[in-house]
Design a protein around this nucleic acid. Structure first.
Lengths: 194, 194, 194, 194
DNA sequence: CTCTAATCGAGACGGTACGTCCCGTCTTTTA
DNA sequence: TAAAAGACGGGACGTACCGTCTCGATTAGAG
C-alpha cells in the first residue's frame, strides 16, 4: 500500500489546491465539497486536480493531513500514565475540537466508504502514531510500569479505541475528566481488586 | 432527537423499499446507491420514498437496522468474562463479517457526515445495546466480579472502543483470539501486577 | 427517414429553447453555439434539450426552419420565366441575405457532417420546395412554355444548382442580374442557336 | 487571400502529419478528428501542427487537397459535349465516390463555417478547375459549339451547380445517366423548341 | 568541431463544453 | 385521491480537446 497513491506533491500548485480544499471544506463541509468548486477557488483546471488525486476523498485526506503535520506531543517524563494523558489530550485537543473536529470526523467517515482512503489514512496517520505510542509503551514496560506480558499493539487499541468510540459512535464530549477516568480504569483493570 | 425522524413505517410498501435498498446497497455499495435506483428497483415513485425518509442515509439506516432486528445474545451464565466474550463474538460475527460488514461500516461512515443519522443510529442501535450491557455489568459488579467503583458507562466504551477501533480505523480482522486477548488485558489492567 | 427524429414539439418550452438557440446562433455563429449556453439562456436544464433533440445540429435545424415557416412565394402569372424569377428572388432574399444567410449556410454545412441533418433538411425544406416548383413547372410544360420532354426533377436541380453553387462554393453575391442572366441562359440552352 | 495561409509545406514531417490526418479522417470522420489525435498518430508535438496550420479545418483541407493532386482530365476531342461529359465524370468518380466522397463533403461543409477555408478551397481547387473549364468552353464557343453570347463564368456555374446540388443538398446518387440527361437538357435549354 | 540557437516530442496547464447522473420538486396519467 | 411515472431546473461528475505554455533532448548552422 503506497501513500503516494493519494498524492504527496510538494509543488506550489498542489499547495494552492490543498488550501482551497480546506477552505471550502470548512465552509461547506466535506459532503458538499466539489472538485469543481475546488478548481474554481484554486484558479486551476479540473484536470490538474484529477491528475494529482484520484478522488475527492484522496484530495481531502491529503489536504487535512498535510495541513497539520505538527507532530503530536509524545512526552517522556518517566511516568507512563502522565505521559499517555498528555499525549491523548494533545490529540483530542487537535482533532476532536474545532476547527479540525468536523474535518477529521469526515475523513474517518470517508475512510469507511473507500478502502484506498482507509489505507492511506492508516499509513500516513494511524500507523506512525501507533508506532510512537508503542515505542513509549515499550520503555514503560521495560521500566516495570506496565504488565510485563502486555501485547503492545493490543494496548494501543485499548488506549485509542474508547476515545474513537466516544468521538465517532456516541458523539459524546471528550472531556479531560473522561480521559483521566479512562486511564485510571484501564490501568486498574475491570476486574475486582485482588 | 427522534428516531421516527428517519422512519419506522411498517406497511408493505415501505418494506419493499427497504428490501430494494438493501439489495442495491449490496450490489453497488452505499456510495453508489441512489434514491432513483431504489425507486426503480422497488417499482415505486420517488415521491413515495421522499414521503417516508428524509434522506438516502436515513433510508439506508432504516433498511439496515430493520433487516437485522435479531436481538444479539446477552447470555447470563454467571461468569461475566465468558458472557461478555459470547456477546462480543455474536456482535462481531453479525456486524463485522460478510454480508453485513460493508453495510454496517458504511452506516457508521454516513453517521460521520450527518448528525441526524448519528443520532438515530445511537437511539436505535447503540443505546439499547449499551443499556443491556450495562445491566449485565451491574449484575456482575454486584456479584463482585468487577471493580466495585467501576463507572459502567465508561466500562462500555472500554469494552466496545477497541472493537470499533479495529473495525473502523485499522481495518484489521477481528479474530476470536483478538477478543480473548482483549478481554484478558482489560480485566487484568494495563498496570503491573501488584 | 422521419423528420420527427429531429423534433417537432410545439409546446412553449420547446419554443423558448428554439428562440434561445437562434439568438445565440446570431450572436456567436453555429460553430461556437453550445447546448450549455442555450440551456442557460433559455433557463432550462440541459437534459430538457437532450430529451427533445438528439444533437446540437438537430436543434439548430429545427430552430432555423421553424423560425421561417413563411411559405416562399410561388406566383403563377402564366409566365413561367417571370414566376421562376420571382420565386428564386424571394428565396435568395430570405436565405442568402442577412440576417439568415449565415445561419442557412451553417445549416447546409452541418448537413454535410451529419446524415440525419441532411435527411431532415431534405424532408422539411428541400423536398417541399421541390414539389411546389415541380408543380409549377408541370403547368408551364402543359402550357407549352417548356421543352415538352423535360424531366422536371432534373429541371429543379438545373434551376437550383447554380444558385447553391454560387452561395456555397464560390461565395459570390447572388445579384438580381445574376439571376436574370442565369434564367436567360438556362431557357436558351448552352448550345448555339439553331 | 493567400493559400499559404493554410500551409503548403513540403517537408517530410508535414507529409507525415497530412497522412495521419487523412487516416484519422477516414477512420473517425472530420467531425471527430482532433489535432490531439493527429499529433499522437503522427508522433509529433501539437505545437508542430499549430506552427504549420492555423486550424483543424486548414490542416484537413491541406491534407485532402494535397493527397489528390491528380490533375482531373480535361480532354479536347473537339466535341464539347463529349469532353464536358468526360471531365464531369472524372470529377464525380474522384470526389463523389468512396473513398474520397466523405472527406470532400466534409471539406465543403467546413468551408461553410470558416471563411478562410472557403477562400482557400476556392483558390486551390475551385478556381483552377473553373479556369480550365472556361478555357475549354472558350475554344468551343470560338468553334461555334456554344451560344455565341454565352457568359462563360455563368456557364461554369450552370454546369457545376446541378452536380454539387445533387451531391450536397439532395444527396442523390450522381449516375452516368444523370450526367448525360443533365448535359442534354442544359445544351437544349429549358424552353420549348422554337 | 565545437557552441549556440532553433526545433522538436512530450505533455502540463487554464479553460470550455461535452453528455450523463442524480438531486429534490413538480406535473400528468392511471386505477 | 393517491400513487407510478417521469419531466423539470439545477449542479456536479469525469472526460475530451482546445490553444498556450514550459520543459529537456536533439539537431544544425555559424564561428
Amino acid at each position: 500500500m503506497d501513500a503516494d497513491r493519494v498524492n504527496t506533491h510538494t509543488d506550489a500548485r498542489s499547495e494552492t489546491i490543498r488550501s482551497a480544499t480546506l477552505e471550502l471544506a470548512q465552509e461547506l463541509g466535506f459532503a458538499k465539497l466539489s472538485i469543481e468548486a475546488v478548481a474554481a477557488r484554486a484558479g486551476v483546471g479540473k484536470h490538474t486536480i484529477y491528475r494529482r488525486w484520484p478522488s475527492k476523498g484522496a484530495l481531502f485526506l491529503d489536504a487535512v493531513l498535510s495541513s497539520h503535520e505538527t507532530i503530536l506531543e509524545y512526552p517522556d517524563t518517566g511516568d507512563i500514565v502522565a505521559d499517555l494523558r498528555e499525549q491523548i489530550l494533545a490529540a483530542v485537543e487537535l482533532l476532536a475540537r474545532p476547527p479540525l473536529d468536523g474535518l477529521f470526523r469526515s475523513l474517518l467517515g470517508e475512510a469507511q466508504q473507500d478502502a484506498a482512503i482507509s489505507a492511506a489514512l492508516n499509513e500516513r496517520f494511524i500507523a506512525p502514531q501507533t508506532q510512537r505510542t508503542i515505542d513509549r509503551l515499550e520503555k514503560a514496560r521495560d521500566a516495570g510500569q506496565l504488565s510485563p506480558d502486555l501485547d503492545l499493539e493490543l494496548a494501543m487499541s485499548i488506549l485509542s479505541g474508547p476515545i474513537y468510540f466516544q468521538f465517532l459512535i456516541t458523539a459524546q464530549p471528550l472531556t479531560h475528566d473522561y480521559i483521566d477516568r479512562l486511564l485510571a480504569a484501564l490501568f486498574a483493570g475491570l476486574g475486582p481488586r485482588p
